[in-house]
Structure formats: structure tokens, C-alpha cells
Amino acid sequence: MTALDLADLTKSYPDGGAPTVRGLSLSVESGSLTALLGPSGSGKTTVLKLIAGLLTPDTGDIRLGGRSIRDLPPEGRRVVMVFQNPLLFPHMTVAENVGFGLRMRDVAPNEVAARSAAMLEKVRLVGLGNRRPVELSGGQQQRAALARALVLEPEVLLLDEPLSSLDASLRDEMRALILDLQRETRVTTLVVTHDQTEAVILADRIALMLDGRLVQHATPEVIYGRPVTLAVARFFGGVNFLPGRAAGGIFHTSIGPLVLPTGVTDGPGTLTIRPEAVRLGPGREARPARLVSCTFLGTQTRIELDLAGTRLQALTTPEALRGLAPGQEVGVTLPTAALWVLPEV
């Protein structure tokens, strides 16, 4: 069931530049966790503010459960946005911060207290309710901010870069907390991030934004394996691009013809394969290549290969490379299932 529906949203800022958000349409399933992914400046935060009602779209509509909320004020939307910085109100205690939204809605004081306390427990801030925000660590503040939003039981939770202000060690903890709470509450969640790894780990689906436009909305696996454009492929760490032409299920490139999976239309295009899909060693389909360089990355090794003058990158395990040194010849297999052709050159 569709919970949140963005239809052809456009938003320009008064400085007269190009629109920050251009014709964006996106449907989010109820109870899902969607990552709104894109490089900085791609308009992600603007989309969140449009949904939250903190900005008004120039054109387009925003529907929640099928009903337009475009003209409702932020406080009337049942959508809560959590900013990148925790933005706890400094003159209130942590518990007062968490109860803020309930108090603004004139919920009875004892109910506010009970729900705030329960929420503080869920975000593991028990016993810190009477502290001031400045007395909390960065991670604790972020959790309090999350609690302050979740206590309102919103239909849609909007998180703007929830992990970016945290140290690496705290990031995992916070990520796990977000996932746990989302699973528990089944609140439809939209997380803005610029980090594709984070998006992949967190989200059921990724909505990728580039230059104010939505370019792909799919599961992480699909976006990885079958990016719709070169730009998407590059954003997700694609490095192997072989220009050529498809004809009758065969793709002709500088390294020779390659058998394609079914369903590729004939014509010019670019063939891509993820580096981790490139296999080394002898085999029926193996092509001769020269090992150019190896870079040890810890659990993996990145190697550069030369196939008759065309360079390819591969990720492999240190074990698979045992006995091999740069300059030596090696067999390389490009599995048909891992090939993907983009209709651009």
C-alpha cells in the first residue's frame, strides 16, 4: 500500500538559480524504509522539507494515504522531520524535549510524562530525562531527537542525515537503533543520506537523486547490478565501462565479443560489470589478461587488469591471488549474468 506519494514536485529558491527539485515523483510503500540518496546539493533535504510542510512546492502534489497534504501547515501533517543536527531545545530538559510535541498538541501532562518516559527507554536514555541537552553526548542527543519525533507516532518519519554528525563507532549503534525502532513501529520512514553504503545497509529501497531529479528508485541490489544510467553506475562505485555495440545477443567491444543476458536491444551502448563480479583463473570462458597492479584493501584486494590494451578493475580475495605478481599473465572470466548494458555511449 502506498503511504506517501510525491507527484511532479518542483521547488525553486528565490535566488533565481536552477530549481532545486525538478519534477520529482516518488511513491513510498507504507511501513517501508526508503533512503533518499544523492550527492550533497542534489535537493534531498529540500524534498524532506517539502514533505514536512516547512517549504511549499512550486508545482506538484504531496499525498499521504491518498489525501493531499500540500496545503496543510507542518503541524497538521502527521509527518515529523528530524534535522541533521539534533536541535534539542537548550532551555528544556531531555524529557521536556521529548514531550514537546505532545504538549503542543495539548496532551494531558501525565500522559506526556508516561509516553516520554517510555520513549526514552526505547532509545536507551533511561535516567537522563532530567539532564539538559548540553550535558548529553552527541550520540545521546541524536537519540533524544529521534525519541522526540517518534513519541508523536507520526505516519511518516523523515530523517535528514541521521548518522553524518556521529563518529564511526557511534554510527553503527545509531544505525542499528534506527533499524530496530523502524521494524518495531513500522513507521514509514524516509532517510536522507549522501552515503551509498549507508543507504544500502539501511533501506528496503533507494531513491537516487541527481541534480534535483529522481533517477532511479529500486532495491539496493537492482541499483547495484542494473543502474539505469552511467551516472548512477558511477555513483555506486562502477569502474568498468566498455563502449561497444549490441547485436543479436552479442556485445562487440575492444576486448572481443561477449555473450549478453537476454533482453538487450541492439544498438550502441556501454557494457558495465561490477569489479567484484570479475573472476580470475583458468576456465572455459577465460580470456588472457596481464596483471598490472594489486592494492591490498584488508579483506579484499583491488587489482588492475590489462585485456589486450583495455583496462578493467576487479575485486578479489587475497587467497585467489596467491602466487601471482604484477606482470604475470592470468585468465579472466566476465560471467554473462553479471553483464549490464547501458544504452549510452
Partner: peptide
């Protein structure tokens, strides 16, 4: 202020 709005304050 935007945060407070989003949390339901008029």
C-alpha cells in the same frame, strides 16, 4: 524553529 513546527507547534 522549523524543527519545532515539524514537531507540531503553531
Amino acid at each position: 524553529e522549523a524543527q519545532a513546527r515539524s514537531l507540531g507547534a503553531r
